[in-house]
Design a protein around this nucleic acid. Structure first.
Lengths: 254, 254
DNA sequence: GAAAATATGCCAGTGACCGGCATTAGCTGG
DNA sequence: CCAGCTAATGCCGGTCACTGGCATATTTTC
């Protein structure tokens, strides 16, 4: 029984808040916005979900919780899927219908954030006078803000695992790249006849990747601070990292 | 037998050039620079390598060649390791002593480039008046320039596979991130008492990631051009992407 | 040419992941 | 409250990437 630095009991004291924002890996049909509680008919529970959906959510959350616990305690590679599914009392088959891979469950908190980010980009088009970079940044702040209670604990666990486990880092970076692509597609479709074309898209790509690099740095600093890191501290690191972007940009103009 | 767009015969006509730059995944002990042919004793072949080393290099190259062929012909996931090792007539065990994973062999051309890049960063410290971004860019040009003949063909195959296969993309991005870390460490160690500290490092990180984003864009454009893409075309895309960096930087200064 | 150092092949085992099928649990109309 | 439908789940067997151990073969060294 190898023991890592962080005590589990103190790291995992929080709970989950309601919010129907994370049923599956991808959001349900609702086309962003329009979050009413009503349904035409059928038994809709407290959160506007059927029993089946709530049950699925429960096992999904239990899986994430147990996975983060086991992986941080004994390591990602050292934990078998059988251990995990036994702890949650489901079959392997069910696990793979809930998550695409062993890595997926460890990165759930991160995927949650990026899903909210993409939704935010889709929801509010930037005002006419707004700088695209500022708009990207504000949307990221908003996405963090709307994460459920206890998210920061899970996210920090996930991040710590990424730094220990190359396979997780790889998956994380790929997902981030996919988000980049999606965001770029969305913004590109909005300016159909706007000037620039390819060049403009390249510039937007560079701005977005600049922000993502700053974000990754901020998260690293945050995670390095240890278990006492709360969300306010993350905002601080983000502000610091984003503030460095103009400085770096100045250096980039020969 | 599924057939992809590119005919194999026409895609794979080139050969390998000598150059002892890719024996193992990591370079041998020689501390950069100092590339003489002499050895104290022992049977040193034409390229300054022993028989054993040359043999290993041969199977390594054959593996890359066959892997790229099979993967592009029938897909990465659809090709089993047994097929590959049978084609090269070695055992699985030997494969895993040569490459760390199935993904690794498909990404060999990319790793080769980044190894040369890191070596270049280590070899020549930037002059006192040089902009760090310009220095990063020149080193990347130099790394591409020193790749062996036929590298562009292999690299393009590898890239095309990355875009088809999520697992390969993930591995590629992770390796790129590791290179980023290493480069940053090297440059950080060089300025031990130089001003700035954390802030300066963050700015360097942002510049480096900016260049890497531009590089990835350039490679994408290059690969999109299809099989007729030669190295000169890559330089063109790189110049275009790098030229966009100052423009994007201007947008990043509110 | 013998001894030491390495490389290779074979084999058996582990663990992630997937398709198929029977069973169960939740939903729907009477 | 009960049949009929849909969908989630569990079980089973199979594939395939990857690993450690050990015997064999090849290269290097003396």
């Amino acid at each position: 029984m190898p023991v890592t630095g962080i005590s589990w009991q103190q790291a995992f004291a929080g709970g989950w808040r309601g919010g129907a924002s994370t049923l599956g890996a991808v959001r349900e049909g609702s086309p962003a916005g329009n979050e009413g509680d009503e349904r035409p008919a059928g038994p809709a529970g407290p959160a506007g979900l059927t029993l089946r959906e709530r049950k699925k959510l429960r096992t999904r959350r239990a899986l994430v919780e147990e996975a983060l616990r086991l992986f941080t305690e004994q390591g990602f590679g050292e934990t078998t899927l059988d251990e995990l599914v036994d702890a949650v009392e489901i079959s392997q088959r069910t696990f793979f219908r809930t998550f695409a891979s062993k890595e997926d469950v460890a990165l759930a908190p991160e995927k949650e954030l990026w899903a909210a980010y993409v939704a935010g980009i889709e929801a509010r088009p930037p005002g006419p006078g707004r700088s695209p970079l500022a708009s990207y940044q504000e949307t990221l702040f908003a996405a963090v803000r709307e994460m459920a209670e206890g998210w920061e604990r899970r996210f920090l666990c996930s991040r710590a695992l990424c730094e220990r486990t190359p396979a997780l880092l790889a998956h994380s970076l790929r997902h981030c790249a996919e988000v980049t692509d999606r965001v770029l597609h969305i913004t590109a479709e909005r300016r159909p006849a706007a000037g620039g074309g390819r060049d403009q898209e390249l510039r937007l790509l560079l701005l977005l990747e600049l922000m993502l690099a700053a974000w990754r740095w901020a998260v690293r600093q945050w995670a390095a601070a240890g278990q006492g890191a709360d969300r306010e501290a993350l905002y601080g690191h983000m502000r610091e990292a984003f503030a460095a972007i103009p400085d770096a940009a100045a250096l980039a103009r020969h």
